[in-house]
Amino acid sequence: MLRSVQMTEYAGPDGLNDMQELVRRTWSPASRLHLGDVAWERSVNARRSSADWRTAVWRDGEDVVAWGWLEQPGHLLMTVDPDRAELATTVVEWFRASANGPRLAAGVLETEKHLLAALESAGFGRDDSAPYFTHHWISLDGLAEPVVPDGLTLRHVRQDEVAKRGAVHRAAWSDLGPSKVTDNDMAQVMSTWPYRPELDWVVENEAGEFVASALIWLDEQHQVGLVEPVGCSPAYRRRGLGAAVNLAALHALREAGGTKAVVCPRGDDGYPQARALYQSIGFRPGSRTLHLLLG
């Protein structure tokens, strides 16, 4: 069976379409990655050095059946068709031969048993002291209505508002140091499938500035939206804007044909605020990620 499988390596951002093809075809609630995860991470980091960002894709004929991504020099993300579970071992072998980090690590969802088995067979073990993420789910039936204080407006982004969209992201994500996301990075995000401006919601103040945002990526095939990312400018926090902009985006997702949504906040107690926000509007926790180290 394996003799028919061909591998292609990429450096830099190439390979996104192949990765999304496999994620969409094999997605289930037991999958770690939604096609929006791949779209966001690859597009927002598209200018990353090719030398430090490698991807391998395995095909059986025309079908993508596995891929591995060194999202950091020593860290692996992978997707393998569960019907071709034997290829997980092949991906891990490629990772060990290709990675150059000081200690090799990988991340999977606890329900991805075929990936977990391949990593454990190669000598990787769980690091339960590491931060982890928990998939949270919400049905789009019976959503609360979003409300913002007087003087603020909820609306979706327009395609020509790249600079304002980039500015609110940087404001929200610069608490621990300046965000590296440039306007060019945001333009790349907003031109990457399946981005839709009508699913990218913001709170706008009276001066026309965006002060909170929530982006949803819709997988039409499975009718599931991924919320990624969400943020609020520090000066506007604790006013309910995070909840409001999320709810507005979820209503738009339902209008676009979505039936449920998933979001993946930290599950450990190192950063509980995001988890509390999502649970306050109806998201409920499901499976968690696992961090594995070699040796």
Rank of each mutant, 00 (worst) to 15 (best):
S4R: 13
S4T: 14
S4A: 14
M7A: 14
G12V: 03
G12N: 06
P13L: 00
D14V: 01
L16Q: 02
D18W: 00
D18N: 06
Q20R: 12
V23A: 11
R24V: 11
R25V: 00
L33Q: 07
H34Q: 04
D37E: 02
A46C: 12
R47F: 12
R47P: 03
A51I: 04
T55L: 06
V65A: 12
A66Y: 07
W67L: 08
G74V: 08
G74S: 09
L76K: 04
D81N: 12
R84C: 12
R84I: 05
R84Y: 09
R84Q: 14
L87C: 10
E93W: 02
E93G: 15
A97V: 12
S98C: 07
A99P: 03
A99H: 04
P102D: 15
R103L: 15
L104W: 14
G107F: 06
E110N: 03
T111A: 10
E112W: 03
H114C: 09
L115R: 03
L115K: 08
L116V: 11
E120V: 10
A122Q: 06
A130Q: 10
S139L: 05
G142Y: 03
G142Q: 05
L143T: 02
A144D: 12
P149R: 01
D150Y: 12
R155K: 11
R155G: 04
H156A: 10
R158Y: 10
R158T: 10
D160A: 10
E161N: 04
V162C: 09
A163F: 04
A163P: 00
R165D: 00
A172S: 15
D183W: 02
D183T: 08
N184C: 09
M186N: 00
Q188M: 13
V189M: 03
W193K: 09
P194H: 00
E198Y: 09
L199I: 04
L199P: 09
V202Y: 07
V202L: 05
N205H: 06
E206Q: 13
G208I: 12
V211N: 09
A212R: 09
A214V: 13
L215S: 11
I216T: 15
W217H: 05
Q221W: 14
L226A: 01
P229I: 13
C232V: 15
Y236T: 06
A244G: 03
L247S: 00
L247M: 02
A248Q: 01
A248Y: 03
R254W: 12
G257Q: 10
G257Y: 09
G258C: 08
T259W: 10
T259Q: 13
P265K: 06
Y271V: 09
A274L: 05
L277A: 04
I281R: 01
I281D: 02
R288C: 14
L290R: 08
L292C: 02
L292D: 03
G295V: 14
